[in-house]
Amino acid sequence: MYRLPGFEYYRPLSLEEALVLLDKLEDAMVLAGGTDLVLDLKTGRYKPKSIVDTSGLKELKYIVDTGEALRIGALTTIQELVDSPIIASKTPLLWEAAREFAYWQIRNMATIGGNLCNASPAADTAPPLLVYEAVVKAVSTSGERYIPVTEFFLGPRRTALDKKELLVEVVVPYRNLERHGYAYRKIGRRRGHDISIVSVAVALRVDDGLITDTRIALNSVAPVPIRARSIEEFLLGKEPSIDLFREASKLVDRDISPISDVRAPAEYRLHVSRILVEELLLKSYKRAFKGGFE
């Protein structure tokens, strides 16, 4: 745990250069912050021949508000998200998740792009981005394409990104969620920093007394961070109530497939997912209607 194995090291100073490198190099991995990759190199999880260090790509550090969506450069650090008033006001779910993300020193290093590309089932930025239905922009020497976050994670540590592609931007549409209530909560083994046992992000919209849109996303309870589609469909068109939310929360069993590991037993993850979904639906509803059922 003291030292890293050797690798060929590249530090491109422009996006162009980075893409050429990714095109050319066999078996390269992208370093974008290092809080996951460096420790994975230490433990031997990955043994790439080459490392492409993106720390020179200042052009991928930005937060831009288009009026419809936020465009976030992939190398924006998590702490920059926390410090951004735009993030706090336009995408409060992402802001809350960023605030709960690890701790100061890690947040200064970890990037939003790195967090997504690491594709941990416990990725902290994933639940809010799944709720916002964010889209990531992937570019390579042969062009660019947009991948919805909902289709980005293929499995633990596996993404839809091609080896030669670089994730350069995360587009977070917020306009169509402006009338939603929202809530976020992460449960870990302690109050300080921890990998989540589960975290849940919820957004809920009610029009004329009926639920017109629900989005629920969870991490750490399936091979990839996921949306709870069964609950979302169940709630559509129904009249919100405490009982309804409780009933809906039970359907989370259909959407998640938690495992038992050193961090928590599967049954607990299932149980607490239900509790959180219920709690956060209620909180979202209250936020949407300032007061809720009281």
């Binding site: 370093l31 809080t35 460096v38 420790l39 020193q105 890690i106 200064n108």
Partner: peptide, 10 residues
């Protein structure tokens, strides 16, 4: 503040 054990000297 950052962590020096996850930072490359370069």
């Amino acid at each position: 503040p950052v962590l020096s054990c996850l930072t490359l000297t370069v």
